[in-house]
Amino acid sequence: MDASIILEHLYLVVMTVIFSVVVGLPIGVLAYLKPAGRKIVLWSVEILQTIPALALLGLIIIALGPGKMTVISGLVLYSLLPIVHNTCVGLENVDNGIKEAGKGMGLTQLDRLISVEIPLAFPMIFTGIRIATVTTVGVAVFATSVGGGGLGKIIYQGIRTQNINLIVSGTVSLMIMAVLFDVLMIWINRRLAKGAHNKAF
């Protein structure tokens, strides 16, 4: 097993997370701003999550043709739930007094979101991104079934050829990657939370 496969997997994960945030964050914010649509949005992302990852990828490949970007778009759909959910709930949970004060100062809704509400909800939003990242590391294994490469290739190969060494080396790399992401992101979140604290007081 060479490093390129790990890098390939890493590429899938990082791209997926970036796109998930780009798509999921605005959806979460919209769901928060428009309570009427909130239920439908949260429900839809939950439904997406009930479709088996493999099937979702299979369908997208058929629709868009094989290739890394298609794999990534499938994985994005699959990781929307925690990001959208945490964004929406995190914003809802921001203290009402603070929201009111923002209004009282005559800030526009957009200004309030950007300068007050999103910063305060950020730890929760970031937790959603972290969950999505760690899950994606695992789910990206399926990429190989639809020609996307990554560590899944090693694992499948191991299972097919009954080569336990191959399976274990693939799995361990995967676990390490997941744990590293997890630890790194928890650390970043703590740092950010501390920074916000210092700024406020």
Binding site: A101, G102, G104, M105, A200
Partner: peptide
């Protein structure tokens, strides 16, 4: 003024 509104928000 900004600091003042901050204080008011924090202290309710």
């Amino acid at each position: 003024i900004r600091e003042c509104t901050d204080i008011m928000a924090r202290q309710h």
